[in-house]
Structures are given as structure tokens and as C-alpha cells.
Design a protein around this nucleic acid. Sequence first.
DNA 1: CCCCTCTGTTGCGTAAAACGCGATATTTGC
DNA 2: GCAAATATCGCGTTTTACGCAACAGAGGGG
Lengths: 295, 295
Amino acid sequence: MDMRPLKHFLALANTLHFGRASDACHVSPSTLSRSIRQLEENLGVSLFERDNRHVALTRQGETFQTYAREALEQWEQLRLSLQSEALRLTGEISVYCSVTASYSFLYALLSQFRTHHPGIELKLHTGDPAEAMARVLAGEEDMAITPRPRRTPEALAFKSLTRAPLVFIAPQQAAAWIPSTPESPSTEQWCEVPMILSEAGLSREFADTWFKALGVTPRIYAQVAGHEAIVSMVGLGFGIGVVPKIVLDNSPLQERVRVLPVKPELPHYDVGLCVLERRLKSPLIRALWDEVQER
Amino acid sequence: MDMRPLKHFLALANTLHFGRASDACHVSPSTLSRSIRQLEENLGVSLFERDNRHVALTRQGETFQTYAREALEQWEQLRLSLQSEALRLTGEISVYCSVTASYSFLYALLSQFRTHHPGIELKLHTGDPAEAMARVLAGEEDMAITPRPRRTPEALAFKSLTRAPLVFIAPQQAAAWIPSTPESPSTEQWCEVPMILSEAGLSREFADTWFKALGVTPRIYAQVAGHEAIVSMVGLGFGIGVVPKIVLDNSPLQERVRVLPVKPELPHYDVGLCVLERRLKSPLIRALWDEVQER
DNA sequence: CCCCTCTGTTGCGTAAAACGCGATATTTGC
DNA sequence: GCAAATATCGCGTTTTACGCAACAGAGGGG
């Protein structure tokens, strides 16, 4: 937007003299004359009553003067406001994650980020981690916490935040089916254990793989959606579960269960932040992305 | 003021698609791309987050969108408002005249003008007619009612409105010094008459000329500023006065005085409207000027 | 009354900018 | 993996803007 015509008009309205006004605007008198004429043609009215010796505002010119002042001020104000807004990185970022993530490392990360960029609003949506990547790919969320998939889609950027070891957990109270030598598991001890596992997801796949290596078909006591619920059921004494250690660490029931030092250990998986690659061009997204340090 | 950048921006903000937006604006995609880029450079912030496949408003873009809508609407509204204002000839005209003129023909003229152009405000200033032309020349008044001067300054336009005959007036009640044969004035009868004349102005000059032709040096009883005051003094019986007949016709004291049918009659002068020639370019002034019909 | 100065406007030549076309790089969907 | 889509860039052409100089008209002073 070229605001010079308005400035030219205001200068002339103030001085009522083409020469002095053109000096003030650092243009030649002819330029200013043509600028005013063009304004008048665009508006369809004459703004100045003038001859070779006198310049006077018309009634319409007076009306336009107040408009021009306001319009120019609004423009400049907007300019400054936009720029400072851009510097302050004002905006909104939505993050999708599991309940556990929101309790644990994500909470620390985001509160640190918030002090660095107080102008950025964070919207935290919790839900099933299995949906995380789909939501980001669909553009419904800016970022998500998700286990690193086997193959990362090309459009996605992924940054590991933490390792999430899987652990076996057993109730604190004694039970006949709790293996006595978890450090060297035997087929006999494990084939009758009531297991509480996830319905789906990496933790379930890893557990299945572990049992397969041992040559055991586990007795599934319950299949649960959500790791948090597994802790609850194990705490109540229904069986042995497999959960990410981080879920355990953040569970209010962690004193009701204990980790079994099973060998070989279950694999861990990477939990990290994912975002659409192209969205990293946004300074907001970029700021949060840069805030997190890999691994 | 070129508002196209704003229109381009709004079109793109609506469609989020350079091709369709450029079609809507009847420009090529490259033009629209450059237009947006230029806007962003002027503002110092990026308005769209875009790559070859996606276009999205940034936070600043959203702020700018509301501004652009308002600014464009204000501009268009102002345009229309100014144009209709120009058509309706809205404005203000100041007219300077004597008290008598404001009572008599000017009142009729202006009330007629007001019905034709209800949008025009008229400001009536009354005062000494001798100052009328000076005030118009100085630009303090748009127009004035004034006796036609001997030589009209070149910068002034003058249009006669009415003839103003000068008359001798005497008190209604008898007085020794009232000439018995005013139809054929004699030097003896007039040399001792107490005269009440204007301090200055055409009426005084004409009266002096009249006496000079008669060969009489009049006895000046009083010199008065303002014809209206002459009527008052004559009505009170102080002497004989010379006033424009029109002043008499509009005087509330006209029954206290009578016109002397003196021969030869005093000359008349033209009373008319005067205005700066160059101010006739203003449609407002022109409208009032054209409303009055000469003589 | 004439001349001189001041001042807004206009013609014109040059410089800059805007514009559209085609090419390009990159991305998405099949 | 390939084809369609699409924002952007390079380039040549057209349009526009700018300043200089000349012009015209209006005051002001001698």
C-alpha cells in the first residue's frame, strides 16, 4: 500500500502551498500537483480550490483531511502492532498428546517454553497416542507427542524426546502367579501368569514378541485401552502388566505396584514430537520445535 | 490511492489459492504473488505461510485481514459520501450586509436559495456597508451586499440587485426649518436647515453634490454612522436627513417621518452582490451567484 | 499602468515500476 | 514413480511516475 498520496494531501492541506508542501514531502512540485490531481480523480471530487495564486481546502477536502489523518494513523499503528506481534511471536499452537505425556516431560517443556515466549498460547489436547500422527497429517493439530513409528512419513518431522522403556509390573502384595525368578524367566513360570496388556500399539507388539521369544503363549487376563488403566488393574492385583516406565512414574498408584526385573528386558521405544515438515516455516512452530532438544 | 493491494490480499485470504484469487482480481498469478510480497515487505511481516502447494494466513495475516476489510470499506464509504456531498452542494457561505439589507430583499433571496439548496449553510453577518468590499477582498466573507463602487476592483465580480433611490426625509411634526416648497428648492430655504447626514459613503457624497449644485453649504446638525440611525434622529425632530428609500421602507419609525418631494431628485445608486471573481469557481458560491438575477 | 516575482500546471524525456508469459521447482494424488 | 497442480522467478514489453524546464496567470510595487 502506497500511502504517499495521503501524506502529500495532508502536507498540502497544512501548508496550502504546493512549493512548501512538496519540499516537506521531498518531491517536486509537479509530482505533488499530479498526486493531488490523481486523488481528486479517484475520489471524483475536488479537494482543493486553487489557482496560480491561492490554495484552499474545499468542504470535501476538509472531510477528506480528517479521513486521511485517521487512515494514516491506523496504517502506521497496524504496522507497528504487526511487527511487534511478529517479534513477540504471538499466536497459538495446538499440541496433541497422551495424558501421561501431559503430566510428565511435556509439562516441564511447555512451562519452560511459556516463560520464553509468553505471547504464544498453547492448546493441549489429550487423547489416544495412536491417533496422534493422523491428526497432525490432517492439519487438525500443529504438533503431537507420539511414539516414533517404524517409518516416518516424509511430510513429517520427528524429534525424539525421551526413551520409553517398557517394564513388567506386578502388584505389591504377594500372589502365587508372580514369577519368583524374573531375572531368568522360565517357560513354566510364565505360561500361567494372568497378563494385562494393551489392545494395540507398540507396547503390545513388543510384549508379544517378548513372549514369542520365550516360547510362551501368554494367558491374557485383560486387554486394555490406555496404559494408565493397566496400572490400575495391576494395582488391584488382577495380574502382571506391561507399560512404559514413564506411565508408571507418573501414576498415582505407583506404590501399589512394583517393577519386575525381568530378563531379557523389553525393548524401549522413542517418544518424540512430530510436526508437518512444511509447518516448520512458521516462526511459532519453529520456536517450539527449536526449544525441544533431541533425546 | 491505489487500493488494489488490499483487494488482492482479501481475495487471497478468502480463496487461499493464488490462481483463483488472481482470476477474481483479473490479474495474472505472478502479479498477485508480487502484490502480496510487496505488501509483506511494506509491513515487515509475512501475511501468508505458503509453499508451492499450501496457502495459509499467518496470525498477522488474520489481524491484517480485519484491518483491510475495514480500511477498504471506509475508503469506499468516504468516496460515496464525498461524491453525494459534492452533488448536494453541502457547505457554508458567509454573506456580509447591512441590517436593512438583511431585513428586505436579501431575506427573500436567501430563503428562496435555502429551499433550493437545503444542504448549504448561510452565515449572515451584518455591519457597516462601507466595510463590505474590504471584507470580501480580504477573504473574510464569501459575499457581501454593497453599493456599487465607482470602479469595481478587478478581482471582484458585482451583480446589481436593486436600485436604491436616496430621499430627503423630514419629521412628521411641523418645524419652521422644513422647506415649504421642496419641489423647487431655493437657496434661502435650505441654507439654514439642520441636516443629518452620513459620515461617509455614497449617500454623503451624493448629498454634498446636491447641495453644491444648489449653491448651498448645508448646516450639518449631525453626522451619523449608519442610515438606520438617521431615520431615528429625523423621527425625533432634529432635522432633515438623506437616506436610501429602502432604509425608510424597512424602518419601524417610518410613520414618524415623511419623504420630501425635493427637486431635482437625489441620484440613486446600485446595490448589489459582490464576490471575489476567483471564488466563483466554487460550486457553492456559484450556486448562490446564479440564484440572484441581475437588476 | 507596467513590470517583476511568485506559483501552480503542463510537455517531454528519462527512469522505474508493473505486468504477463513462459519456465521452474516442488508437492500431492493416483 | 509419474503426472497434474501451483506458487514463484526471469525476462521482455508496456505502462506509469518523476523531475526539469517552460508556461500562464495573479499580485505587488514603483
